[in-house]
Amino acid sequence: MKHLTDSQIQQFVFEPAASDNACSTHIEQCAICRSKVGEYQMLFAEIEKLPADSFDVNLEAIIMKQLPQPSIHKKEDKMLWYGIAAVCFLFVISVFLFFGKELAVLFGGVEWLTTALIGTAAICLLAFLAFDMYRAYRVKLKAFNFE
């Protein structure tokens, strides 16, 4: 009687769905092949019970310490810009509210084109100064290692 190959026996044990009927019939009739099937079954049943390897240190804690901290600057930046915008808005409103009449008298005699030019220049200058201040602030933060 021709015995099954080791591959056929392993397939019968570990992938029974892929094993053909001829193999199972042979195993039923052949004591030698049946004993090999038993050997593999017993051996790997024991292997599957072996305890899993593990580190003797808390890996999770070690790794978490090394991860970069979540960046909160974006959120901070947004809040800062919202604050500046709100202050500017309130300032403009209050100026018009309290000095509306004076402003009308002051700019009443000036042509609208001149007024527009002065206004645009003032806004641009303010924006440039504010941006420059903010850039200097970030450079100083970096120098102090706060980011």
């Binding site: 890996l59 999770e60 790794i63 978490m64 991860l67 970069p68 901290q69 979540p70």
Partner: peptide
Amino acid sequence: DTSAFSIII
């Protein structure tokens, strides 16, 4: 939320 990475670990 880096703390979620600890769940992944």
